[in-house]
Design a protein around this nucleic acid. Sequence first.
DNA 1: GGACTTTACTTTGGATCCAATTATAACGCC
DNA 2: GGCGTTATAATTGGATCCAAAGTAAAGTCC
Lengths: 234, 234
Amino acid sequence: MSDGDKSVVGRLRKLIGEGHFQTGERLGEVAVAEQLGVSRTPVRLAFRTLEQEGLLQRAGKRGFMVREFTEVDVRCAVEVRGVLEGLAARRLAEQGLSAALADELQVWIQKGRDLLAKGHLVERDADAWSELNRHFHEIIVGSAGSPVIGDAIARNNHLPFAAADSLIIDSEALDREYRKLQLAQLQHELIVQALRHGEGARAEMLMREHAFIGLRYGELLGLGRAPGGEGRYD
Amino acid sequence: MSDGDKSVVGRLRKLIGEGHFQTGERLGEVAVAEQLGVSRTPVRLAFRTLEQEGLLQRAGKRGFMVREFTEVDVRCAVEVRGVLEGLAARRLAEQGLSAALADELQVWIQKGRDLLAKGHLVERDADAWSELNRHFHEIIVGSAGSPVIGDAIARNNHLPFAAADSLIIDSEALDREYRKLQLAQLQHELIVQALRHGEGARAEMLMREHAFIGLRYGELLGLGRAPGGEGRYD
DNA sequence: GGACTTTACTTTGGATCCAATTATAACGCC
DNA sequence: GGCGTTATAATTGGATCCAAAGTAAAGTCC
């Protein structure tokens, strides 16, 4: 989604997300243009886009500055996403799952089971889960019959969440991650159950709670606080 | 907010909202630039902004096209706004209203009562209510302690809702509007009540329902369908 | 010595120019 | 006559240039 993005917007997004600019730092068009080896024009276009995405904010008439993201911002963004995905889940439950959709969701549930079945994680499993998780959520949001929800979520997710794509190196971190993913898997299964049974309110509630798995479940699972952010916010 | 906006973005927003371009119509940079009497550069910048706002969408590499807004889009956008404002209301209720904030809300409640006290509307009252309503909602969203909710709502409201700012001319329309505003006022008062009592779930529910006043309450109040959209979606 | 004014420089906004990609249309071939 | 190919026109993306606004600094006056 943003790795192979060679556009100026994509590159800037990456740079900002990786913290190459200090928060609150003023970004000059010329400086950035030189740094990226392009002219001012694409940078100007990119600045406007990134402003709308919320990564930059206007600094009066002195151009733009990197928006600060406090911990509160992150929590609130996660909360908003949870609420929006909760809405999608409720809609989906209330409108009734088609058999095809139920099967499709079940596929990803099964993939999750397979992934976690061997009782531990290897490094690349985290990426596999990330992909799986993305599909799972996209299916629900995309099938809710509301063209607006997906857009709203997408706009919100421009905030640098996954930026701290926690590097999992030692086995201890892998073990922490494994326990987290087990919980996420359980939540996924409960959500699908609610969707199947047409339990809109329950599906919504579960989805809202599920959004906080990266934020609120750490201490509970004895995960402590992951370094550099609090792990993935799936 | 968008009347005196002389910027290219503002003017284009207005033109699109007023339907000067057909939905699905391809917008060429040169054509628009000439029509607005400016060069291509500001138009290009504006297009990127309007794309992010959701008013335009890319037409492959053939530039941009005016996004179509179906009735479903509007309903879903209203739903999303309701959910987000509902979140704000719940947060506010749960964190507890300060005395100052309670007073401030009460001021606008009273203004609403005063406005509707005389038993009927005159034309300019609709604008007064619009202003009042805006303040009321902004206070709640702005005081929820979540910097993200307001942004998300703002982004969502770029969709051309209030565009069809229904011209109220005849007394019959004024009467319909009056009954609608009475209901809105009641909902406002209930919401404040819930906020005061710290009833988060109830505040959220009421706010969600309140969002639909422009869409779902027409037939119930014998308002029929307002011409040119369905009236204001306050 | 401090504050105000003026000047020079930095920086953004707008316009024009050039290149590259793409769509359209014309032409030729099967 | 239809389809494929080629060439031309149109349009977007990128670069450079000019103007306007603002900031910072230097100088002067009180």
